[in-house]
Write a protein that binds this DNA or RNA. Structure first.
Lengths: 281, 281
DNA sequence: TATGGATTGGAATTATTATTTCATATTACC
DNA sequence: GGTAATATGAAATAATAATTCCAATCCATA
């Protein structure tokens, strides 16, 4: 066997492309197939891959040996490793970008960093959304007369988007904000037949926490989006979601929170439509 | 065998979590391992997985059977499919999810859809950000006395986040919004030594366009974030960015716009800090 | 604490899959 | 055009891996 066997996918890929023209016909055929369908190589069996590529299993093994592997199995490992890495790389990329930005790597790095932070956050939340909580929250919000939306400072953009979306879906809602300082009055109108979506992350804006407390004491159920079970919001909430947003350059992403907020909003809209239809029938 | 075998990873995951407490000890052990190390299940052999999880291979097979699969092999397929999907392009996933949601595939699908839409948008923008425009925009904003931030309706959350971030960075800024209807007066204070960040997407909010026109007529340079060169905003702008946000269930993602907005803001902050340092030296 | 049922471990068995081998075909070179 | 070297196909074989089976153990219940 060769001394320098390609051990990562990129090297392998380069090697294949270099030798492409000096390979026998069938071997070249499987080489092309491998670069076009790396996933199939990662998961298939020698027989199944050979069949898809239109060659014999033995050819596949010869291909691997030409590249310096001692058989198909070791070649396949490289393709599998690729899939593993692809999956875990967001975090690593973000760490690299943070380091880069630290040393002043220019403005493009800042942009890449925010994109990566958003990607990481999305990755994270898609894996850990609690579906039961999600359903509970939807049920709770769907039967509310008015949905109050409560968020300050960093979380405020999410609240304003929720309010916009609820409005578009013709769901009665009230964004708790008032230039005139009438928040307390606004809150006092909320009843147990209403519901609240409250969003706050550490460091929790005191106003958001206070208002959440008052409103929960009035018996209005709260759906909270926050960052940990220690969050003061969590204790006032009927249902709460933990969202871990990655940050970059001191500013946390809002992508995951936004996605969750939009999903909640649209799901509530859908549930109401379904309920309305049933009532008519 | 059970009639309804989990066929995708998320369903499987949920099923496992539901039954978690009613499973025998060793089976529960492998269940926990499976959820913690899905990649290992996808790639390993029954023997290797069993060893890592500290159980017998037969237990692993019993686990699969409890879930309704007819053996380890069919369980493994679900874990492999997950990796394939993760890897498949965001676009394809989004298309699949849209189709799913169409046929009313439940609330989880809505959530997944918004996550995928955000991911697609991020993917897209990271590939096509024009670096020259980016630098121009930063330079333009960095030398502004006051940065005005202009966006209505759907884009308003972005504007409010920009205003929040600028504030944190101690950069003088003015969000153009006024419950008292004083926008026109607010705008009239802007001078050519200031600058504007304007954000608007089709269908362009008339108020946003009008205000952008007025303010540009006053000679105030505008950095625009919009969705095409046909956008009315583009014609008033000194620098403009095209951002294509994917949409889901009728609501467009804001992730790419947010990432760009944050990058702009932080880069401006950095540029000012650097400039300040130089002036002192 | 005795008893039945459920659970588990470990080896035996079966199945699947990779690899080797060898006959045949193709190609390149004289 | 003949010959040697190389490449390919197909089946045989070896290796590996999944599954089954049965004895041992654990656990709940009477």
């Amino acid at each position: 066997m060769d001394e320098r066997v390609p051990r990562d996918f990129e090297t392998l890929r380069t090697t294949i492309l270099e030798r492409r023209h000096s390979l026998p016909k069938r071997i070249a055929q499987i080489a092309a197939y491998a670069l076009d369908n790396p996933d199939d190589i990662a998961f298939g069996t020698a027989a199944s891959i050979a069949a898809s590529a239109g060659v014999q299993p033995s050819t596949l093994i010869r291909f691997a040996q030409q590249l310096g592997f001692d058989g198909f199995t070791s070649l396949q490992l490289v393709f599998r490793e690729r899939l593993r890495e692809r999956n875990s790389s967001y975090d690593e990329r973000l760490a690299a970008l943070r380091a880069k930005a630290e040393e002043g790597a220019g403005h493009r790095a800042i942009f890449d960093g925010f994109v990566a932070a958003a990607g990481t956050s999305l990755n994270d939340i898609s894996g850990r959304l609690n579906e039961d909580h999600f359903e509970d929250a939807i049920a709770l919000l769907a039967k509310a007369e008015t949905i109050y939306v409560l968020a300050k400072r960093r979380s405020y953009p999410v609240a304003s988007y929720i309010a916009y979306a609820l409005g578009k879906l013709k769901i009665r809602n009230q964004l708790i904000e008032s230039a005139a300082g009438l928040n307390a009055e606004m809150i006092s109108f909320a009843s147990p037949r209403d519901a609240v979506i409250a969003i706050s992350f550490s460091p929790y804006a005191p106003a958001a926490i206070d208002e959440a407390r008052v409103i929960s004491e009035q018996g209005v159920p709260i759906v909270a989006i926050t960052d940990s079970s220690f969050s003061p919001l969590a204790q006032f909430a009927k249902v709460w979601f933990e969202v871990a947003e990655a940050d970059f350059a001191g500013f946390r992403s809002l992508s995951a929170t936004m996605a969750l907020a939009m999903a909640l909003t649209v799901a509530v809209g859908e549930k109401r439509r379904d309920a309305g239809r049933k009532r008519k029938a």
